[in-house]
Every structure is written in C-alpha cells, then in structure tokens.
Amino acid sequence: MGGYGVAYAASVLMARGLPLSRYEAMQWAILASFPIYLCVVLWAFRARPLMRMWKGVLGLAGICAGLAWWMGPA
C-alpha cells in the first residue's frame, strides 16, 4: 500500500515536472511507476524497524505529493 502511494505520488510528480508534452511526460511516468513501486517494496522488506519503514515510505510519498500539489495541474 505504502509502495503504491509512493509510486503514485512520484509518477504524478514526474508527469507534472518533466518539461515535455503532456502525453510524453505521462508515458515516462507510467513506465517508471512500476519499477518505483518495486524499489519501494524491496526497500520496505529490508528496513528492519517497522517504524523507520513507515516513516520512510510516508515521508517519500508526502514529499512527492506535496511537490506535485505545489506545481498544480498542468
């Protein structure tokens, strides 16, 4: 779930942030979303203390979502 959150937020950030056409940026974001999700899942299973994992995942998702929100819809 957390991984999906990060993947979602990071992808939206990419789709908004990349200096490309709307379609192109979105396609990059979609291509990247699954590997991002994977990386978060792998990292989450490595991080030993559960709290640290949650802090990391939620923090990352929060930062991405915040930035994306700040940029606003294109």
Partner: peptide, 12 residues
C-alpha cells in the same frame, strides 16, 4: 497500466 495507474493518469 491504465487500470493499475488510473489515479496517475487521472491526475493529469
């Protein structure tokens, strides 16, 4: 991807 990442597409 349009099912799984529907919210991402919807965001834009």
């Amino acid at each position: 991807c349009y099912v799984y990442m529907a919210p991402v597409i919807a965001a834009e």
